[in-house]
Design a protein around this nucleic acid. Structure first.
Lengths: 192, 192
DNA sequence: CAACATCCGTAGTGATCGCTACAGAAAGAG
DNA sequence: CTCTTTCTGTAGCGATCACTACGGATGTTG
């Protein structure tokens, strides 16, 4: 029933494919570049992963899981402002990490608009919770703020790919935070 | 000394090339797609424009001139806040104009980072003038604010290409405006 | 008019694209 | 061991890539 086992580690090869697609995007990545990066031959790639589109689907799944985990960790912080600050800071750091390709696959790849919307939905939910919690003014448009944050992060990805330094990208993050409304005054604190 | 004149209008063909590159980017645009859009044959294209890269250079020149004209018009407004508001509003409108390709060629094409820096420099200059004029607080980091604005506009381009409505993209623009610091209090106005 | 310069379309260059037919190698099942 | 099953690499499929050689068409110039 069983035949010859595959001679490479599927997970390792997939990780190499993630890196390659991350660096050069879907259209910019050729099968020959993939097999070189993955250390396998074309028939092995097609046997193990289907075709280029299916392989990219698995790559996107891995990448999105990693990204959404970071988003969720940030969203777990007690206030929207803290969550957004953490998320923007993470974004700036990851996008300029010299150990990985610059920028973000999820934010830049045209065909991953569904994954981008998943991020946006999480942000909308978190902001609405912030409104309910009282740490965000009730007149804030959660959808607009979430779209804005996705736009800024996408812009940070582009800046990183243009060669902006980590400090420049962090400066964008800090500036964007000013667009997150300050919490409405809670019970007046004692004067200093 | 003169031979057969060319049978097509160079400017019209260039405009068609602008639209094609705008829609599908440099790498995503093939010569066959270009000649189809321009209504000419490959030898005519190569005779009139050199090669693909040179044609794209002319396309970028045309596109950047148009874009920078809009930027300069916005920058001519009396305050940084008005200039930024105008620029973001223009951006939202142009990026979602159903009469042209979605998004922005200048902001999305990887090889146009030089043109993006030209936009950024104009923004830095305008913000520094705003600081000198007193309509922007002196502690504002002009470079960071300019990078932020470029990032937001790039994000708006991506959102438009993802299919966001004109209203959604405009909402991003309005939200981003909140990151532009309010002018420092001028001579105290009479109480209402 | 003839001579010349330039452009036109056809047709095809070698290279690379995504993908696969094929035959041999390497494992478990009997 | 043999048989079966699956993976392996080589080698090559048709399509498309950017680009061009070539010969005929179409102008201006003398």
């Amino acid at each position: 029933m069983a035949g010859r086992p595959r001679s490479f580690d599927r997970g390792t090869a997939l990780a190499a494919a993630v890196e390659q697609f991350w660096r050069t995007g879907y259209e910019g990545t050729s099968i020959s570049a993939l097999v070189r990066a993955m250390g396998i031959t074309p028939p092995s790639l097609y046997a193990a992963f289907g075709d280029k589109a299916q392989l990219f689907g698995e790559v996107a799944e891995v990448y999105a899981a990693r990204t959404l985990e970071g988003v969720d960790q940030a969203c777990a912080l007690p206030t929207v402002r803290e969550a957004v600050a953490r998320m923007l800071d993470d974004t700036a750091r990851v996008h300029t990490d010299p150990g990985t390709p610059l920028g973000c696959l999820l934010l830049t790849e045209p065909r991953l608009d569904g994954q981008r919307d998943a991020v946006r939905r999480r942000l909308v939910d978190r902001i609405e919770r912030g409104i309910a919690d009282g740490d965000v003014p009730a007149d804030v448009d959660a959808g607009a703020l979430a779209s804005f944050l996705v736009a800024v992060m996408r812009g940070m990805s582009g800046a990183a790919r243009d060669g902006a330094s980590a400090e420049e990208v962090h400066a964008v993050a800090r500036t964007a935070l000013a667009a997150v409304p300050a919490p409405p005054a809670p019970p007046a604190p004692p004067a200093p």
